[in-house]
């Protein structure tokens, strides 16, 4: 990201763009607000909120846990008689 932005002044002569790049290199938070010409946006580590991905991953984990409980308690332990010794 930084590399791309630093190369911009060489390619364009837009003073406004130069100012944006200068801000971006000074503070990541400002860069996040400013946005780049290529549509990329940098956000701080803890502001990353992959809510949808997180929901799907937890849904999958929950399903896995529920199916394990079903297989173990209903399919396995529920099918007596069983070996006890």
């Amino acid at each position: 990201m930084d590399g791309e932005e630093e190369s911009e002044p060489d390619e364009g002569d837009d003073a406004e763009a130069d100012a944006e790049v200068a801000d971006a290199t000074e503070a990541d938070a400002e860069a996040a607000d400013a946005g780049g010409d290529d549509g990329l946006r940098e956000i701080p580590h803890d502001e990353f909120e992959p809510t949808g991905t997180f929901a799907i991953a937890f849904l999958y984990l929950g399903l896995l846990a529920a199916l394990w409980l079903f297989v173990y308690f209903v399919e396995f332990l529920g099918r007596g008689p069983t070996v006890v010794g």
Binding site: G80, P81, V83
Partner: peptide, 20 residues
């Protein structure tokens, strides 16, 4: 059921089961 064992020549499989 879960009552299941391999039966191997030379070995004696021992399993205890309760039939209620």
């Amino acid at each position: 059921t879960n009552v299941n064992t391999m039966v191997i020549p030379g070995q004696i499989a021992e399993i205890t089961v309760e039939f209620d």
